[in-house]
């Protein structure tokens, strides 16, 4: 096997761009939440400072091997999603390592990080971690249901499991986008996106700034830095997945930034308006409207 150094270089560059774009979007999200609450909010570079500080924490504490591997699995879940996701269509350089059938792999990688994190956080032994894991896994399972049904509907519609083929089938004007050709699947998937990005109505799992912080209760220092890095990457890549599947992909970086920003901020806008659901409420919510829409989307294209 020969290494294509140019491809590796461009993939790493893409990862760097995606990471910084994710951190910037995270800052913009917190800034928006602050402005809605009539606060001034954080400086726009605060996520970078937090990242540097967390990597510079001097003392770390281990709870065992899996405690180390938890953030590693989480990060490899995020980077795995990135590696198989075509970023810019039309340029061979930014397609990363996508191939025929990568849609299945991406669905797998979405759960991979969660499971790794569950093992790692479970080893930390903190009761809040265990509660957070059970909440997170049960919520994510119900999130996956409408999302998977919507993706099945799209796969049936375009008769392919390759993201590149799906994007290319949507080229030639915005009326070819899936959002117009298959609106039912799009609505089901966009509702489940609210849960995937875990913003306000569905953020009980991490519950930032409250007492039960969820799975990463015991994670500190560079462990937490890895988790923050992964969060930034994951948010962009999830938005890129929805951009590729439903909104015609991107042919240049400007289009990529615009579309991922708008898709990401769909969940942020919902988040600043709606208060948080309890876990049984969010589970039953996903099992109602989004699931019915997902089933409908599959039936329509069978």
């Amino acid at each position: 096997m020969d290494f294509d150094f140019e491809k590796i270089g461009f993939t790493l560059l893409g990862l760097f761009i995606v990471l910084n774009w994710g951190l910037l979007m995270g800052a913009a999200m917190r800034k928006l939440g602050a402005r809605v609450g009539r606060r001034y909010g954080i400086p726009w570079f605060q996520p970078w400072i937090n990242l540097f500080k967390n990597y510079a924490i001097r003392s770390t504490l281990s709870h065992g091997i899996m405690f180390y591997l938890g953030p590693v699995f989480r990060l490899s879940g995020g980077i795995g999603l990135f590696l198989f996701m075509p970023m810019i269509i039309g340029s061979q350089l930014w397609l990363n390592y996508s191939f025929q059938g990568d849609l299945v792999l991406i669905m797998y990688f979405q759960f991979f990080g969660m499971l790794g994190m569950a093992l790692g956080a479970g080893e930390s032994g903190h009761p809040y971690s265990a509660i957070g894991i059970s909440r997170g896994l049960s919520q994510f399972t119900t999130i996956e249901l409408p999302l998977t049904l919507a993706i099945i509907s799209i796969a049936v519609q375009y008769n392919t499991l390759s993201i590149i083929d799906i994007v290319q089938a949507q080229q030639g004007g915005f009326m070819n986008w899936t959002v117009f050709t298959n609106p039912v699947a799009t609505v089901a998937a966009m509702l489940s996106l609210l849960g995937v990005l875990s913003h306000s109505p569905f953020n009980l799992v991490n519950a930032p700034n409250e007492n039960p912080i969820g799975p990463p209760t015991e994670y500190h220092g560079s462990f937490l830095g890895v988790l923050q890095t992964n969060r930034a990457i994951l948010h962009v890549v999830e938005a890129a997945l929805f951009m590729n599947l439903f909104f015609g992909g991107a042919t240049n970086w400007f289009e990529f930034f615009m579309k991922t920003f708008l898709i990401y901020f769909w969940s942020v806008f919902v988040g600043v308006v709606f208060p948080r659901y309890r876990i049984e409420q969010s589970v039953s919510w996903f099992l109602k409207v989004p699931l019915v829409l997902g089933v409908l989307a599959v039936i329509l294209y069978m």
Partner: peptide, 14 residues
């Protein structure tokens, strides 16, 4: 206080 980078955290580890 968020302007100054101050943020509350629920756990002593973080």
């Amino acid at each position: 206080a968020f302007r100054y980078g101050v943020m509350p955290r629920p756990t002593p580890r973080q």
